[in-house]
């Protein structure tokens, strides 16, 4: 499928919001791919981290928000630690998660979680998980 790229899309309000909330300039990324190369959670992702940035650069924010990748970022900071351009990708992922939840509601339905497993979890796992997956 051929997608249309236009000035309206590339300079859309969504891109501006993501840049504002993340504090990151998405155009700083030159797609070396080092984030994708080192991401420990990439196995669970449908798109590589650099592809998420690419979608934002293209103004295809909706596609980025639909991607499962943003929910599998563990904010481990490995990408940011090695990014040659200093792009704080975990912050970008956080902005996308926030935006996705604003549009579609919480990502995690607490009622559907495995209660037995939950009883085992340390407190910080819940708190962190709920903060990342719910608003």
């Amino acid at each position: 499928m051929r997608v249309t790229i236009s000035v309206e899309q590339v300079r859309s309000e969504w891109v501006r919001r993501i840049e504002e909330v993340s504090g990151q300039d998405v155009m700083a990324c030159y797609h070396c791919g080092k984030c994708s190369a080192g991401c420990p959670a990439a196995e669970a992702m449908d798109l590589l981290p650099n592809q998420i940035i690419r979608l934002v650069q293209l103004g295809q924010v909706e596609r980025a928000l639909e991607s499962q990748t943003i929910w599998y970022c563990a904010a481990c900071q490995t990408c940011y630690a090695r990014c040659p351009k200093g792009v704080d990708l975990p912050r970008l992922m956080e902005a996308l998660r926030e935006l996705a939840m604003q549009k579609r509601g919480d990502h995690l339905e607490i009622a559907r979680l495995d209660v037995q497993a939950l009883a085992e979890f340390p407190q910080q796992a819940f708190i962190a998980g709920f903060r990342k997956y719910t608003t």
Partner: peptide
């Protein structure tokens, strides 16, 4: 590494 052309780690 990554092969960004095929989108794979």
């Amino acid at each position: 590494g990554a092969d960004t052309l095929s989108g794979q780690q």
